[in-house]
Simulated assay, not measured.
Amino acid sequence: MKIAVMGAGAVGCYYGAMLAQAGHQVVLVGRPALVRAVQADGLVLEKDGQRHVCAVMATDDPAAVAGADMVLFCVKSGDTETAGRQIAPHLGAGALLLSLQNGVSNAERLAQVTGHSVIPTVVYVASAMAGPGVVRHEGRGDLAIGGPGADAAGAVLRAAGVETDVSDQVMSALWAKLVLNCAYNAVSAIARLPYGVLAQVDGVMPLLDQIVAECRAVAAAEGITLPEEVSQTVHGIPNWMPGQFSSTAQDVMRGRPSEIDFLNGEIVRLAAKHGIDVPINRTLTLLVKLIERQQAE
């Protein structure tokens, strides 16, 4: 199959590499530095102590999605509409379009701007760019997907070694991940500390419990039933990924805009719709935005 990755960052490059290793024709649409590195040396995947060089194509032209049987849409949430409009004229009618993004509203927003059905996808992978064209796998790598076309997409992904759960509860899973992101992302970004260190600071874990409680109230108002194990998962993350910085922390440390408006900020917006007060999520959103403003000056 021809598979395009729109937004080839750490997530897109990881799954692009896995699919390329399975023999698919993969094209990455990314930043110029990535494109130059991949064109010169291939896409390098560091996984399980080994270094794999994957033969993929790379470009900064969104038109490269033309003819793709599957498109992995991995751009930052704030870029969904812009990037969606860029690929819309080039999407084949039968292309499987997957939204591998944080937050709970991206699949719907992407469908609106492309006029194409979108498969919501929950991403469970710890990966990072170790340099231009070099993606390092640091943990997990499974996906949960749902909706029309999910069975076909799941078969392709599983055949490439990507554990993929096809579920009619994908929105609940997206919300569960949103809650995890709301608990850790902003706190890790403000403190510029990894999860394992954060958990050792007195008062941090009770704070995370309060964040989760606010998110639960908003989810319930939205008619979403969160998995019972969400709180246990929040408490387990520092043990599973002690050295991991949140994606928001990585953005802040690189001076890039974060997705805070689609994480804690999403909770704030939805809470206002239902008349629910979420002071901690509101404060965390404001603090991250203040850091971003300071960096932009």
Rank of each mutant, 00 (worst) to 15 (best):
Ala58Asn: 07
Val125Trp: 03
Gly78Leu: 01
Gly67Gln: 13
Glu214Val: 00
Asn102Tyr: 06
Asp48Lys: 06
Leu72Pro: 09
Ala271Trp: 09
Tyr124Trp: 15
Leu208Gln: 03
Ala130Phe: 07
Gln39Trp: 05
Val29Pro: 10
Val44Ala: 06
Leu286Ala: 10
Ala83Ile: 09
Val212Cys: 01
Leu143Cys: 09
Leu174Trp: 02
Val122Ala: 13
Val65Gly: 14
Asn239Gln: 11
Glu46Val: 05
Leu270Ser: 11
Val278Pro: 03
Asp60Cys: 08
Gly149Ser: 11
Arg192Gln: 15
Gln210Glu: 07
Ala191Tyr: 10
Lys76Asn: 05
Met6Lys: 09
Ala219Pro: 02
Leu72Phe: 12
Asp168His: 11
Gly139Ala: 03
Asn102Lys: 04
Ile3Pro: 12
Lys177Ser: 00
Ala159Cys: 08
Ile280Met: 01
Ile119Tyr: 10
Arg140Ile: 02
Ala271Asp: 05
Ala221Cys: 04
Ile260Asn: 03
Gly149Gln: 11
Gly141Phe: 02
Ala63Tyr: 15
Gly255Pro: 10
Val27Asp: 15
His90Ile: 11
Ala159Lys: 09
Ile87Lys: 12
Leu157Ala: 07
Leu157Val: 06
Gly115Asn: 13
Gly243Arg: 10
Glu297Thr: 12
Leu143Lys: 05
Met57Asn: 13
Val135Ser: 07
Met241His: 08
Glu108Lys: 08
Pro32Asn: 03
Phe245Tyr: 14
Gly12Cys: 11
Gly30Arg: 08
Ala33Ile: 00
Ile280Leu: 08
Pro132Thr: 03
Met241Lys: 07
Val234Thr: 02
Asp277Pro: 00
Ala189Asp: 07
Val44Phe: 04
Glu259Met: 04
Ala155Cys: 09
Lys47Val: 05
Val35Ile: 12
Lys273Tyr: 05
Val75Ala: 06
Ala58Phe: 07
Ser127Cys: 12
Ala186Glu: 01
Leu263Lys: 02
Lys2Ser: 15
Glu46Asp: 05
Gly67Ile: 15
His24Trp: 10
Val187Tyr: 04
Ala213Asn: 00
Met6Glu: 14
Asn106Ser: 05
Ala155Arg: 14
Ser77Leu: 04
Gly243Met: 13
Ala176Phe: 00
Met171Cys: 03
Ala107Thr: 03
Ala219Ile: 01
Val204Ile: 15
Arg140Ser: 11
Gln250Ile: 11
Trp175Met: 00
Gly12Thr: 04
Val44Cys: 13
His24Ala: 04
Pro132Gly: 04
Gln232Ile: 02
Met171Asp: 13
Gly84Pro: 13
Pro257Val: 03
Glu108Gly: 02
Asp142Arg: 11
Ala63Gln: 15
Gln244Pro: 00
Gly243Ile: 06
Pro227Ala: 03
Gly133Asn: 02
Val135Thr: 04
Val125Gln: 02
Arg109Asp: 01
Val134Arg: 12
Pro32Thr: 01
Gly7Phe: 12
Ile280Trp: 02
Ile291Glu: 02
Val135Pro: 10
Asp79Cys: 06
Leu19Gln: 14
Val230Trp: 00
Val204Asp: 06
Asp165Met: 14
Val179Phe: 00
Ala173Val: 01
Met129Cys: 09
Pro279Tyr: 03
Glu229Gln: 15
Met129Lys: 09
Ala152Arg: 15
Glu259Trp: 06
Lys76Ser: 03
Glu214Ser: 00
Gly223Ala: 06
His137Leu: 02
